Simulated assay, not measured.
Amino acid sequence: MRLHFLDPLYARAGPFASVYVDTSRDIDDPDKAIELRRRHTRSDLIALGADPATADASADAVGTDADLPGRHGQALFATHGEVVLTEELPQPPPVDKTRYTALPDAMPLALQYAPDIPYAAVVLTRVEPKGGATAPEDLLVKVQTGRWPSSAVAPRALTSLRVPIHGWRQEAERLAAELAHLIDLGHADTLVLCGDTWARGVLVNRLPAPLRNRVATVPGDERDVESGRALLEPQLAALFRGSLSAHDRDRLESFAAQRARHLAGEGLPATVAALQRGRADALVVNRPAQGWPPIWIGADPKQVALSATDLETFGATGYEEQPADAALLYAAVATGAELIVVPRQETPLEDGIGVLLRY
């Protein structure tokens, strides 16, 4: 998973307020619950030493996703009285969490956005004709692209068109070309189709033959669409559970080959050493995540070490101890590394972390 969406965080100097909060709307009186969370966010940040302007900005941002229905959470980051990044969480945090630290506590957000699978979803439904009961049926076509699972709570625009049944073959030709183009550009690993069996078959038959194995058919119809949520959200959750994007699968295969050659790339010390040398192409992290002891960072992103003594050896000054997950992610983003999240039971890693080497 590429981490460009975190770039705005690291373009600013800290310290940072990092807030993870449950802003679900599927409870009784959600506005009252969110107002209570605003007050707790502000008081917690003040207790942690945040300046009042940053505490106020953070608290004011809690619940600004009120138009998003259902169960979800919010991650927000602020510094020097300004919110610099707000992201929706597909799953609310187990408990609300607030930090005020030199580096943003962004690893929980990154883990929620994995595996970041690009896809296109298409729903095909027969509907009553506009010309009355004697006219041929129409086909309602809904199309949406996204990256799972972040699209569940941050869906892209939904395209909807109504096509006379007799015109579907021609329209399917055009749509198949568009979907094939998305795959060619890397904007979709999977084409998720749902709805009328005949209409699905017409569309699939017009796809280039090599792309037909990218098609996944799921049950349901347009009634599964909820405003503000991803098209076919429940079906996507079931389809992609435990999966990786095609990009991450390729990276993980390279990591497996690296392991087979017994190259140093597993465990916290090896990961830190690779980041120090700018040799980390991707961090490989187990889910559920493992707790790591704090590590040390200096002024430069490559100045990351397991001890202050190690940083002194590199000539670093002004270093400080930071939570390991925040420091590792900062170094990864700053040096252009990616993040691959893998289930622990499938790929157990020493210390729950490894690194795919760049050279």
Rank of each mutant, 00 (worst) to 15 (best):
residue 68 L to Q: 12
residue 83 V to H: 07
residue 92 P to S: 08
residue 93 P to R: 06
residue 75 A to G: 14
residue 90 P to K: 06
residue 116 D to H: 11
residue 82 E to H: 14
residue 95 V to E: 15
residue 75 A to R: 04
residue 120 A to Q: 08
residue 114 A to H: 00
residue 128 E to K: 12
residue 88 E to R: 15
residue 105 D to C: 00
residue 92 P to E: 09
residue 70 G to V: 01
residue 125 T to R: 11
residue 81 G to Q: 04
residue 67 D to G: 13
residue 127 V to T: 11
residue 68 L to I: 15
residue 113 Y to F: 13
residue 124 L to V: 05
residue 125 T to L: 02
residue 97 K to L: 13
residue 95 V to K: 12
residue 114 A to C: 07
residue 127 V to P: 00
residue 83 V to E: 08
residue 85 L to F: 12
residue 71 R to E: 11
residue 94 P to H: 04
residue 69 P to C: 00
residue 97 K to D: 14
residue 121 A to K: 07
residue 101 T to P: 00
residue 104 P to L: 09
residue 110 A to P: 05
residue 106 A to R: 08
residue 95 V to S: 10
residue 108 P to C: 13
residue 97 K to F: 03
residue 103 L to K: 06
residue 118 P to L: 04
residue 68 L to T: 15
residue 114 A to R: 03
residue 112 Q to I: 05
residue 79 T to A: 12
residue 93 P to S: 09
residue 100 Y to E: 08
residue 104 P to K: 10
residue 102 A to T: 14
residue 112 Q to D: 15
residue 78 A to D: 13
residue 99 R to M: 08
residue 117 I to T: 02
residue 103 L to F: 07
residue 105 D to R: 01
residue 87 E to Y: 06
residue 109 L to W: 09
residue 90 P to N: 10
residue 114 A to S: 14
residue 97 K to H: 14
residue 88 E to F: 02
residue 105 D to G: 00
residue 94 P to E: 11
residue 115 P to F: 06
residue 115 P to A: 06
residue 111 L to Q: 05
residue 92 P to K: 04
residue 85 L to W: 14
residue 91 Q to P: 00
residue 103 L to M: 09
residue 99 R to S: 14
residue 90 P to Q: 03
residue 103 L to V: 06
residue 123 V to M: 04
residue 76 L to I: 11
residue 87 E to M: 11
residue 83 V to Q: 04
residue 101 T to E: 15
residue 83 V to Y: 05
residue 101 T to G: 06
residue 79 T to Q: 05
residue 78 A to K: 06
residue 77 F to Q: 11
residue 87 E to Q: 15
residue 120 A to R: 07
residue 121 A to W: 04
residue 129 P to Y: 09
residue 108 P to V: 11
residue 125 T to H: 07
residue 81 G to R: 03
residue 116 D to I: 01
residue 125 T to W: 00
residue 80 H to W: 02
residue 99 R to A: 14
residue 111 L to E: 00
residue 117 I to A: 03
residue 95 V to C: 01
residue 104 P to E: 10
residue 69 P to A: 01
residue 79 T to F: 08
residue 107 M to T: 03
residue 121 A to Q: 02
residue 94 P to S: 05
residue 118 P to V: 11
residue 80 H to E: 14
residue 117 I to L: 03
residue 129 P to H: 08
residue 67 D to Q: 15
residue 110 A to K: 02
residue 99 R to E: 12
residue 69 P to E: 01
residue 113 Y to N: 12
residue 121 A to T: 04
residue 120 A to I: 07
residue 77 F to K: 11
residue 122 V to E: 06
residue 83 V to N: 04
residue 111 L to Y: 00
residue 128 E to D: 15
residue 98 T to K: 10
residue 109 L to P: 03
residue 117 I to F: 02
residue 67 D to W: 12
residue 119 Y to S: 07
residue 118 P to E: 11
residue 129 P to T: 09
residue 122 V to H: 02
residue 109 L to Q: 08
residue 120 A to C: 13
residue 118 P to G: 09
residue 75 A to N: 05
residue 81 G to L: 02
residue 97 K to T: 13
residue 101 T to K: 10
residue 124 L to S: 10
residue 76 L to M: 13
residue 123 V to R: 03
residue 79 T to R: 02
residue 101 T to F: 08
residue 124 L to Y: 07
residue 123 V to H: 02
residue 84 V to P: 08
residue 128 E to A: 15
residue 117 I to Y: 03
residue 94 P to L: 09
residue 99 R to P: 00
residue 87 E to R: 15
residue 109 L to V: 08
residue 81 G to Y: 01
residue 67 D to I: 07
